[in-house]
Design a protein around this nucleic acid. Structure first.
Length: 273
DNA sequence: ACAGGATCCTGGGGGC
DNA sequence: TGCCCCCAGGATCCTG
């Protein structure tokens, strides 16, 4: 599942190879994509075709392909989405292809489960889901994080997945950050002390930094902009490790519980309420 | 305000 | 070996 580190790794891989390229014809599979809205092919062609790419940016888990003149394609990878520059035969489940003029490679969006989405924006165009996003984890002041978490009775596990509170975390890194901070995932946000909020903020930055230097976590589908798997799965302390001994306290066994139909992994011994 | 469930989709894993 | 069933999960929507 691409979360912030995976999306950022793809961005760093692809941006230098894309900037300056002029988009040729766009091809789409015609299959409906999920998340928010169906693909508007005409709007995507209007935004991209014949224009040069000036940037590949990122906001939370969204990639922003920015064209000269300011039109953008907003790409969310969902669960199984991949974005890559490639030549040759297209993979099954390729849904959007940006051909590039004078280049053999084409930019491809591949998504077997179609939980992802591609949206075109005209210059200055706004997207509700982008407007509603909270701050980026690396630059968010700890006081702001604490203030927002204190304002909800929801369990921290759920509050941290809420993209309007903090943007870019998903199931894996929320579990990992709570583990590194020594905080029980079921602790209500309203009960988080300032001291523990600081621990949590540091833990979030730590797990994201580590995942970035490992080029993302590959459990099943994720690959980087060059089609290679990441290495951070080897560094996970709790996610997917239910039944194993806790790496920190060595007393507890990692437990898996289900919250909101999502696996939550934690050490009942050293993650406290 | 929040919990809990359903929804979308497919490849892969478990069970038999 | 093969087949069926179930399940993961990001975001969103709905009900209680």
């Amino acid at each position: 599942m691409p979360e912030l580190p995976e999306v950022e790794t793809i961005r760093r891989d692809l941006e230098p190879r894309l900037v300056g390229a002029r988009v040729g014809k766009i091809w789409t599979s015609g299959k409906p994509l999920r998340l928010a809205r169906p693909l508007d092919v005409r709007a995507l062609r209007r935004a991209c075709e014949g224009r040069r790419i000036v940037a590949l940016g990122r906001r939370a888990k969204y990639l922003l392909l920015t064209m000269e003149g300011g039109a953008r394609a907003v790409i969310h990878l969902g669960m199984s989405g991949r974005l890559s520059l490639a030549t040759g035969a297209r993979l099954p489940h390729t849904h959007v292809v940006w051909r590039l003029e004078d280049r053999p490679e084409e930019l491809r969006f591949v998504d077997p489960r179609r939980f992802g989405n591609v949206t075109a924006l005209a210059p200055g165009g706004r997207l509700p889901e982008l407007e509603l996003l909270g701050e980026e984890p690396f630059t968010m002041p700890v006081e702001r994080l604490h203030e927002l978490l204190r304002g909800t009775k929801r369990a921290l596990k759920l509050a941290l997945l809420d993209q309007s509170i903090i943007a870019g975390l998903g199931n894996i890194y929320v579990c990992e950050a709570l583990f590194h901070a020594g905080i029980h995932p079921g602790l209500p946000g309203a009960k988080l002390s300032a001291a523990r909020a600081a621990l949590l903020k540091d833990a979030i930055v730590l797990v994201l930094d580590q995942a970035l230097s490992n080029r993302g976590t590959t459990l099943r589908d994720y690959v980087d902009g060059g089609g290679q798997v990441g290495g951070n799965q080897l560094s996970l302390a709790v996610y997917g490790r239910d039944g194993e001994a806790c790496r920190r306290c060595r007393k507890g066994r990692i437990r898996r519980v289900t919250t909101q139909a999502r696996g939550t992994f934690f050490c009942p011994s050293c993650q406290t309420r």
